[in-house]
Amino acid sequence: VTLFVALYDYEARTEDDLSFHKGEKFQILNSSEGDWWEARSLTTGETGYIPSNYVAPV
């Protein structure tokens, strides 16, 4: 499993987005949709879409 870490804070803009804080780690569930990836936060357990340019591989 490839994990990603948040480089910046992000505040959700829609109900499908996932808010997160810098340093939070994610498991990517689906990265085939372009710039927005479906991810699960390893901190909160919540699932939603995150901007791929806000995260980097651990």
Rank of each mutant, 00 (worst) to 15 (best):
T47R: 09
F26T: 00
G34Q: 14
K25L: 14
D16F: 15
G48N: 01
L3Y: 11
Y8I: 07
S52H: 08
E46F: 13
L7A: 03
E15T: 14
T14K: 14
S52V: 09
R13A: 13
H21F: 12
L18M: 11
K22T: 09
W36C: 06
A12N: 05
K25T: 14
A56R: 11
A6L: 01
F4N: 01
Y49A: 05
T43W: 10
E46S: 12
T43E: 13
I28H: 01
T43N: 10
D17M: 13
L42Y: 08
I28A: 03
V55C: 04
G45N: 09
Y10C: 04
D16P: 05
Y8A: 09
A12Y: 02
S32D: 13
A56E: 14
T47F: 08
D17S: 11
E11M: 13
T44F: 02
T2L: 13
A12L: 02
V1N: 14
L3E: 09
H21V: 15
S19D: 05
E11F: 10
Y54H: 09
D17N: 10
G45Q: 07
D17L: 09
N53Y: 09
F4Q: 04
G45R: 04
Y49W: 14
L3H: 10
D35E: 13
S41M: 06
G48F: 03
A56D: 05
S19E: 04
E15W: 11
W36H: 07
S52M: 09
A12S: 15
Q27W: 15
L18V: 06
H21A: 13
P57V: 09
F26P: 00
F20I: 06
L3I: 14
L18F: 09
D9H: 07
L29G: 04
Y8H: 13
T14N: 14
E11N: 12
T47G: 04
A39P: 00
Q27E: 12
I28W: 02
E46P: 01
V5E: 10
D35V: 09
E15Q: 11
P57M: 09
T2A: 12
E24P: 00
I28F: 03
R40M: 13
Y10K: 03
E15L: 10
S52F: 08
T47D: 04
H21L: 12
G45P: 01
S41L: 08
R13M: 15
F4A: 11
G23Q: 03
E33N: 15
D35Q: 11
A6Y: 00
F20M: 10
S41F: 03
Y54P: 01
L42A: 05
S32I: 15
F26Y: 01
T2Q: 14
Q27P: 00
E46M: 15
S52T: 07
A12P: 05
T14I: 06
Y8W: 15
T44H: 03
D9L: 03
E46A: 12
F4P: 00
A56G: 09
F26K: 00
K25S: 07
A56Q: 13
R40W: 10
T47Y: 08
F26V: 04
K25G: 05
Q27K: 07
Y8F: 12
T44I: 01
T14L: 11
S41E: 03
V5L: 06
L42F: 08
N53Q: 11
N30S: 14
T14W: 15
N30R: 08
I28L: 07
S31R: 15
T2R: 13
A39V: 12
N53T: 11
W36R: 10
L29V: 08
A39W: 01
T44M: 02
G45E: 05
L42G: 03
